[in-house]
């Protein structure tokens, strides 16, 4: 697959070298770089589906990317529910796809 990273840019310049870290999504390891959000790191690895709708099981991914729509919500380190687009990566971060029973509060 062609890289999803924007390495070179005519106006913004080339991407700075950043430190690589490993995050896990549903148990699978992915390489991310410091400064990435969980959403951008997974997209860069070709992962678009972040959860399935609680009732209809229709697949969902990033929609607004700035925290408004809550479509990208995931579970972080087995407890907290967070928006993948507003969560920066850390080495060893363990992210799981979320399927909450209908009506449960997050």
């Amino acid at each position: 697959m062609k890289s999803m990273r924007v390495q070179e840019h005519p106006i913004l310049g080339n991407s700075e070298k950043k430190e690589a870290v490993t995050i896990y999504f549903d148990g699978k390891p992915y390489t991310a770089y410091t400064g990435d959000t969980v959403a951008s790191a997974l997209l860069a690895s070709g992962v678009r589906t972040l959860r399935k709708h609680e009732e209809t099981a229709s697949p969902r991914g990033i929609y607004c990317n700035i925290g408004h729509c809550f479509e990208c919500r995931v579970q972080l380190n087995g407890s907290e529910t967070v928006r993948a687009c507003l969560t920066t990566v850390a080495d060893g971060m363990y992210v799981t796809s979320l399927t909450l029973p209908k009506g449960a509060s997050i």
Binding site: M4, A44, I62, Y63, I66, C85
Partner: peptide
């Protein structure tokens, strides 16, 4: 429009210019 890969235009802008990840090819 709920399919993964459909995003608001602003989402694509932030992805490309801020996170430096392409929204797609």
């Amino acid at each position: 429009w709920t399919l993964p890969g459909v995003m608001s235009i602003g989402a694509a802008q932030v992805m490309g210019n801020v996170h430096r990840v392409k929204p797609g090819h």
